[in-house]
Design a protein around this nucleic acid. Sequence first.
DNA 1: AATACACACAACCGCTCCGGT
DNA 2: GACCGGAGCGGTTGTGTGTAT
Length: 303
Amino acid sequence: MGRPPCCDQAGVKKGPWTPEEDLMLVSYIQEHGPGNWRAVPTNTGLMRCSKSCRLRWTNYLRPGIKRGNFTDQEEKLIVHLQALLGNRWAAIASYLPERTDNDIKNYWNTHLKRKLKKMSAAAGEDGAAAATAGGAEAKSRATAPKGQWERRLQTDIHTARQALRDALSLDTTAPAPPKPAPMERSSKGAVYASSAENIARLLEGWMRPGEGKASSGGSGSGSRSSASVVSAEGASASHSGTAPTPEGSTVTSKTKDEVAVAAPPAFSMLENWLFDDGMGMGHNGIGDVGLDDVPLGDPSEFF
DNA sequence: AATACACACAACCGCTCCGGT
DNA sequence: GACCGGAGCGGTTGTGTGTAT
């Protein structure tokens, strides 16, 4: 506290990374491995702050990142996990090793939030009468007697957990090849992406032992993300702040209940969507997530 | 063809946590 | 036990691109 942010230092470059900078960063990490980010700008000559370097690496340059469209299965998994874990994107990302937390967060904010909102609205039309004057389920939740909506939350949680377990216990053979997907937009973007892709290609086959998963939540000493996955309870206590629910309302409570609080409204409607086509995970983007890698053996770990 | 608007995504910022001293 | 610095996370913003008018 009170410390000036590292990026405030004079001469620190901000903004989009150039392919040259990417190359410098990648070749450095190739040599030294990720971690010790503080030393990266110094050792590479990059005029970037350590944070920026780490971000660039974890969100863009790290090998095995899948870009582009989210599959339906990924989408559903994200919705499930969001309901379970709230906006802990790093934790969610750990279940989708090919996606970065930033990617998932962006996708949630731009696509899924809207989608869920639409569905909620659709459900609201049907269930408007039941939801009384306010209409919004969130509101009804908020105003319902605590015991009542806690029970309801538990039902939701149970449902989500069950679905997630089902999803993850389905066949995961036929994994999608973790090749980098081409960027889909923009002439400039395409050029840039292709250069980044080339860089990524440089790294093909290079990955430190155990990196595959660990790196999704960071690297170096990064034990936090995995801890937050393994122990959602611990994690829930560790982060303060707000946990916006999918419909945009914000819940500030950060107790054990916070995980449940993030459950979307009109869950039954969402369930319809989430459960349709059987949550088949066999031919999806998370296909290379071995079940053994997913710390869901005992769902009670979540709570 | 030009302009306005909407969308997607990369990057930044501020905060918290954790390990070391 | 307190303090400090590095690392990581989540929210938000900025910017480039696509689409509609």
